Amino acid sequence: MKQHPNITVVGSNMVDLLSYLERFPERGETVFGRGFTQGFGGKGANQAIMAAILGAKVSMVTCVGDDVFGPKWIETFEQNGVDTSFVKIVPDNYSGVAAIWVEKTSDNRIVLGAGANEEVSPEMVDEAFDRLPKPDVIISQLEIPQSAILRGFQRAKEVGATTILNPGPAAPVQKEILDNTDWLIPNETEFALLAKEMAGIDASDLHQAVRQFGDRTRVNLVVTLGENGALLYMPGSGNDIIELLAPTVDAKDTTGAGDAFCGAFSYGIAAGLEPLKAIELANTLASDSVTRPGTQISYARNDHLEHLLEQVLNQPKR
C-alpha cells in the first residue's frame, strides 16, 4: 500500500453557512433556527482535505475571490496539508458560498453561489499539470466548469493517472468527460438524473439501471446510498453489483458526508487498495463524519482517525 500517493483535485471551494432547524420552512414561511455555524466546505475542498488527512499529497486547483474569505481559504488549505500553488485569487469576484439548512432529522438542503469557482479554466489546469507532481489520481466535481474538468481528465490520461468524477450537484455530464472517467461516484439522486438524461434509463429499479448504465458507458460505478452504504459495479469484471453496508451510527449532520466518502475512496484507490477495501474505508469515514456537525471539521483526525484506520486496514496510518 502506497502511504502518501499524489492526488490532484480540480474542483471547487465554498464558504459554508449552516443553519440548524427544527424543520424546513414552507413556502413564504419564516422559522427560527436552532443554531448557526460558518465554516469552509465545497465538494472539491472537502474531498481534498479528507484525502490529505489520510496522508495523501494533495494539490488543489481552484479559484477563490478577492473578498475576506480568499486569503482565509489559502490558510485553511495549508493548515490541512493541501498544496495551494494553484489556488488562484480572482479580482472583483466573491468566493463560492453554500447556504445550508440542516433539519433535526439530519437531512439537509443546500443553495450554492459559485462565485470564483466559475473561473477555473482549461488553461489553468494545463499550467497546473505542467508544474505539479505527476498524480496517481485526479478528482473533480460539477461545481466548476466542465471544460476544466475535461482538460484535467485528458491530462490525467496522458500520464496514466486514475480519474474520479463525483457528478454533483446533479447535472448531465459531457460525453467527452465520461469517456475519460475511470470511476463515477454519484449518490442515488445524481445517478437517477444521469441515467435518464444521458442514457434514457429509468432508475426506478436501481440495480438494473446501474447495470445498464455501466455496461453502456464502461465506467466503474460506485453509487452512494447514505446510511445504506454503497453499490459497486465494474462492467467487464465478471462480477455483478456488490452491496456494501455502512456502519450504523447516530447521525447529527449529514453535510459533507458524501465528500468524506469520495475523498477517502480516492485516497484508497491512489494508495493501491482494492476497490472493495477502498469503499469500506470510505463508508467508515463518511459514517463517522455524520456523528458531528459541520463539513471539514467533522472529519476524523489524530487518535480517532488512527483507530478507524486500524479497524478497516488492520494497521495504523503511519
Results as ranks from 00 to 15, higher is better:
residue 224 T to K: 08
residue 224 T to Q: 05
residue 225 L to K: 01
residue 225 L to I: 10
residue 225 L to S: 04
residue 226 G to D: 07
residue 226 G to V: 12
residue 226 G to E: 02
residue 226 G to T: 06
residue 227 E to V: 01
residue 227 E to Y: 01
residue 228 N to G: 00
residue 228 N to E: 15
residue 228 N to S: 12
residue 228 N to V: 03
residue 229 G to K: 01
residue 229 G to Y: 01
residue 229 G to F: 00
residue 230 A to T: 09
residue 230 A to E: 02
residue 231 L to Q: 10
residue 231 L to I: 10
residue 232 L to C: 11
residue 232 L to K: 08
residue 233 Y to Q: 09
residue 233 Y to L: 09
residue 233 Y to E: 15
residue 234 M to K: 14
residue 234 M to S: 14
residue 234 M to P: 01
residue 234 M to N: 05
residue 235 P to M: 10
residue 236 G to E: 09
residue 236 G to S: 12
residue 237 S to G: 06
residue 238 G to S: 09
residue 239 N to F: 13
residue 239 N to V: 10
residue 240 D to M: 07
residue 240 D to C: 04
residue 240 D to S: 15
residue 240 D to H: 09
residue 240 D to L: 05
residue 241 I to F: 10
residue 241 I to K: 09
residue 242 I to E: 15
residue 242 I to Y: 05
residue 242 I to P: 07
residue 243 E to I: 06
residue 243 E to F: 05
residue 244 L to E: 04
residue 244 L to N: 04
residue 244 L to R: 09
residue 245 L to H: 05
residue 246 A to N: 00
residue 246 A to I: 04
residue 246 A to H: 03
residue 246 A to Y: 01
residue 247 P to S: 09
residue 247 P to Q: 02
residue 248 T to I: 02
residue 248 T to H: 03
residue 249 V to M: 04
residue 250 D to N: 04
residue 250 D to H: 02
residue 250 D to Y: 00
residue 250 D to F: 03
residue 250 D to W: 03
residue 251 A to C: 01
residue 251 A to T: 00
residue 251 A to I: 00
residue 251 A to H: 00
residue 252 K to G: 01
residue 252 K to T: 00
residue 254 T to P: 11
residue 255 T to N: 14
residue 256 G to Q: 08
residue 257 A to F: 08
residue 257 A to K: 10
residue 258 G to E: 04
residue 259 D to T: 13
residue 260 A to R: 10
residue 260 A to F: 12
residue 261 F to Q: 08
residue 261 F to I: 09
residue 261 F to A: 02
residue 262 C to E: 08
residue 263 G to H: 14
residue 263 G to C: 15
residue 264 A to Q: 13
residue 266 S to L: 09
residue 267 Y to L: 07
residue 267 Y to I: 02
residue 267 Y to W: 15
residue 269 I to S: 09
residue 269 I to L: 14
residue 270 A to G: 13
residue 272 G to M: 03
residue 273 L to W: 11
residue 273 L to S: 05
residue 273 L to Q: 03
residue 273 L to H: 07
residue 275 P to F: 07
residue 275 P to K: 04
residue 275 P to G: 03
residue 275 P to V: 15
residue 276 L to A: 13
residue 277 K to D: 14
residue 278 A to I: 07
residue 278 A to P: 08
residue 279 I to N: 04
residue 280 E to P: 04
residue 281 L to R: 12
residue 281 L to H: 11
residue 282 A to Y: 13
residue 282 A to I: 11
residue 283 N to F: 03
residue 283 N to E: 11
residue 284 T to W: 08
residue 284 T to H: 09
residue 285 L to V: 15
residue 285 L to Q: 10
residue 285 L to H: 12
residue 286 A to H: 05
residue 286 A to R: 06
residue 287 S to V: 07
residue 287 S to F: 04
residue 287 S to K: 06
residue 287 S to N: 01
residue 288 D to T: 13
residue 288 D to V: 05
residue 289 S to N: 12
residue 289 S to H: 14
residue 291 T to E: 05
residue 291 T to H: 05
residue 291 T to F: 01
residue 291 T to Q: 15
residue 292 R to G: 03
residue 292 R to A: 02
residue 292 R to E: 01
residue 292 R to T: 00
residue 293 P to W: 02
residue 294 G to S: 10
residue 295 T to M: 12
residue 295 T to K: 10
residue 295 T to R: 12
residue 295 T to V: 13
residue 295 T to A: 15
residue 295 T to W: 12
